[in-house]
């Protein structure tokens, strides 16, 4: 058994390169989707991963779940890399780590009833224990996500997006997971429904002690639920730290931009962030990738990738300018 104080999930120096061909016989122009990212998730912790569309969040989540091959780096779940797990460990990993996807419409098999959907994980892991006991488990899971058992015989298309996402969550809960990776689990939902589902996640963490990797492109939504947040930009983690510290004094201009593009964290979650990646933007070749959009760029930013700087409290940033003081929405408030 792994050390209980060690992180549940420990991702080290993960790199993912997609080979890209230009034209039919074109020379390979590799695309770096993840560039040497590292983060940890403690037991029962909520880690937010935020960044605009295309920054590599899903790639990171899927590699952590071992449903996407990586180029290099390590993923340690309870100290063991899924890549080197034996059959038994792998089974346990598939049970203890669950994923929720962005599109609640696409992630449920349209041909199955809710009952069949929820029974699937039990069957996959040989956890069936007779019809009555199984049914009790199904009802309990539905109850946890706030759905009545009368829905068991319905098909996914009969539900709203928010309800479907609850069904997805209930299905993940069937296996008693220690970790749930929620990839944009609320992004496709209406704003009011988003808040309800975020509350459900917080409730689950509170009641069941589940660790959550909460991926979204919307920093305020992520701020509501996360203990710590990793901000991604173009395949790199540019800032990682405790939510309060980040919302008080963001250390990276990109984080500041995400914060100003949105209302304060304790107000209602906002809609999708306006600022998206322009299609063909020079990536600040050689220097800081954020340089073309950075209001604080200096000459030094053009020479070499900014190194990762460790600050107090485990906070880290990949911005050169350590003297920069940017006020976040929580600045001036002594305490949250």
């Amino acid at each position: 058994m792994a050390d209980p104080t060690a992180p549940l999930l420990d991702v080290r120096n993960l790199t993912k390169i997609y080979p890209r061909r230009k034209g039919l016989f074109g020379k390979g122009d590799d695309f770096v989707a993840l560039d040497d990212i590292s983060f940890t998730v403690a037991r029962g912790e909520v880690l937010g991963i935020v960044g605009e569309s295309g920054s590599g969040k899903s790639t990171a989540g899927r590699i952590a779940m071992d449903i996407l091959p990586r180029t290099s780096g390590q993923v340690l779940f309870d100290g063991v890399d899924p890549d080197g797990m034996d059959r038994r460990q792998r089974r346990a990993f598939r049970r203890r780590a669950q994923m929720i996807f962005q599109d609640p419409y696409a992630s449920l098999n349209p041909r199955m009833t809710v009952e069949q959907l929820l029974r699937t994980p039990l069957a996959l892991h040989g956890l069936t224990a007779g019809p009555a006991e199984d049914r009790r488990k199904l009802v309990a899971a539905l109850d946890l996500v706030g759905l009545p058992e009368t829905l068991l015989n319905r098909y996914p298309h009969e539900f709203s997006g928010g309800q479907r996402q609850r069904i997805n969550i209930a299905r993940a809960l069937m296996l008693d997971p220690a970790l749930v990776v929620a990839d944009e689990a609320v992004s496709a939902l209406d704003v009011s429904v988003q808040a309800q589902v975020v509350n459900l996640f917080m409730d689950l963490r509170e009641r069941l002690g589940i660790a959550i990797v909460f991926i979204a492109h919307d920093l305020p939504v992520v701020g509501v639920i996360s203990d710590r947040i990793a901000v991604m930009y173009r395949g790199r983690i540019v800032e990682l730290g405790e939510t309060v510290a980040m919302f008080t004094r963001p250390r990276h201009p990109y984080t500041a931009m995400l914060l100003n593009a949105a209302p304060a964290p304790d107000s209602a979650p906002a809609g999708p962030m306006a600022a998206r990646l322009p299609a063909e933007e020079t990536d600040g070749a050689g220097g800081c990738a954020f340089r073309p959009r950075c209001p604080f760029a200096i000459a030094a930013c053009a020479t070499g990738k900014p190194p990762v700087r460790m600050l107090e409290g485990g906070h880290m940033t990949a911005c050169l300018r350590d003297e920069l003081v940017i006020d976040g929405p929580l600045a001036g408030q002594s305490c949250r």
Binding site: F101, L108, T120, P121, L124, H125, N168, R171, L175
Partner: peptide
Amino acid sequence: EFVIAVEAMGASGVHMLLRELLP
């Protein structure tokens, strides 16, 4: 996603093909 979802829950290729895809 519904196929990836059960794959992430540990479904075998046979299960994905027979229970998720063919139906």
